[in-house]
């Protein structure tokens, strides 16, 4: 009897399918980005090649990864710059 009352009067919870749907959405974004080590290495290599045209970077310390937070996925790259190259075009473009 109490069970029926608690069910009728319980505050409405988020339906579990909404949680499942959201978790599924996130995991598919991750899966589809196919964040394999090769994929990340290749992406990292191309990004560093571009950035190296403008600045001297610390390749060993460079970290590229996908991060998931607050319902979205971001590409996070931490690329320590040792020195901006002179005449790299950065100043001209500003």
């Amino acid at each position: 009897m109490f069970d029926i009352f608690s069910r009728v009067f319980a505050p409405r919870q988020t339906p579990s399918k909404n949680i499942a749907n959201e978790r599924l959405r996130m995991v598919l974004i991750h899966d589809r980005a196919s964040v394999s080590p090769q994929f990340l290495e290749s992406l990292k290599g191309d990004m560093m090649a571009v950035i190296s045209k403008y600045a001297e970077i610390d390749e060993k310390e460079t970290v590229v990864n996908f991060s998931t937070a607050d319902g979205s996925v971001a590409l996070v790259a931490n690329i320590p710059i040792k020195r901006v190259k002179r005449g790299s075009g950065i100043n001209r473009n500003i």
Binding site: P15, S16, K17, N18, A20, N21, L24, R25, L28
Partner: peptide, 16 residues
């Protein structure tokens, strides 16, 4: 279970 909101429904799955 779909009606109770405790199972992914057809539209959810197709959309994903």
């Amino acid at each position: 279970m779909v009606k109770k909101g405790d199972m992914l429904d057809i539209d959810d799955v197709l959309e994903q």
